[in-house]
């Protein structure tokens, strides 16, 4: 588990005048679950892609685990991004950089925690959407990443399924804490999951406000989450347009 420091002076997409991200600065403490909350299209996905090293065209510096080069990053994308020609287990094993250090028991545990043990030899096409999400979450945890990025991983799931996967994720994260950066536009989801909420402006994207979630993890039922949300709106009227 590691501290992560992100500083982006400017990130402008090719062919646009207004920068997508400007003067963005954020620090994640080791083992902290941070939710980024912002409107759709404000540049959250761009931010995650930049942190993951998928887009090197920006000015600034990103330190993960005091490494600027090749930190271990687990990424749960908006789509599950599983290889349809590989089984669930092969999909998970494939992300290990060194294929010799794959721990079978480690993957067995993760599969059990996500209730997928029975499906380890199934192909993604045979699974439901929610199960595919769970596989992609396991894949991200499996490499013991320095930083876990999640880009609205529940966005295309229906409400009951999203709740189920979200609960499994919390359960998994409590067993195996990692530093997490989780993007969402759903405030309730963010309050239920996060240690810290980070509100973002729309383009150019900056940090508008950082707020710690004070509810204990075992008390986060829908009533408490709702109360916290209403208080938030009362105390910080400037967040109104985001909520």
């Amino acid at each position: 588990m590691t501290t992560v420091h992100i500083q982006i002076h400017e990130k402008t997409h090719h062919g646009t005048k207004i920068p997508t991200i400007e003067n963005f600065e954020l620090t994640l403490n080791a083992g902290e679950f941070v939710c980024l909350v912002g409107q759709s299209g404000c540049g959250k996905t761009t931010l995650l892609n930049t942190i993951a090293g998928l887009d090197a065209n920006y000015s600034g510096a990103i330190h993960v685990a005091n490494k600027t080069l090749n930190p271990k990053i687990g990424f749960v994308f908006q789509r599950p991004c599983l290889l349809p020609w590989r089984t669930v287990r092969e999909n998970i094993e494939l992300v290990f950089v060194n294929q010799k250090v794959i721990s079978k028991t480690h993957i067995d545990e993760l599969l059990a925690l996500m209730q997928l043990t029975a499906y380890e030899n199934a192909y993604p096409k045979q699974l439901s959407e929610g199960m595919c999400r769970r596989v992609s979450i396991i894949r991200a945890f499996a490499i013991n990443p320095d930083l876990l990025l999640m880009d609205e991983p529940f966005v295309s799931l229906d409400a009951p399924m999203a709740r189920e996967v979200s609960e499994l994720l919390q359960h998994l994260w409590q067993k195996r804490p990692h530093t997490v950066l989780f993007v969402t536009h759903d405030l309730r989801e963010a309050i239920a999951l996060a240690d810290k909420l980070v509100f973002l402006t729309s383009r150019p994207m900056r940090v508008l406000k950082e707020i710690n979630v004070s509810i204990a993890r075992n008390q986060r039922n829908s009533k408490n989450v709702e109360n916290f949300r209403e208080q938030l709106i009362q105390n910080y009227p400037e967040l109104q347009p985001l909520l």
Binding site: G53, L54, N70, I73, F75, F77, R79, C81, L83, V95
Partner: peptide
């Protein structure tokens, strides 16, 4: 493109990307 991004993020390298993706 998403699968290629996935491969890049998980540091697949050239040979592995070619073979598996």
């Amino acid at each position: 493109k998403d699968l290629l991004n996935m491969a890049k993020c998980y540091q697949f390298g050239r040979i592995k990307t070619l073979r598996h993706i």
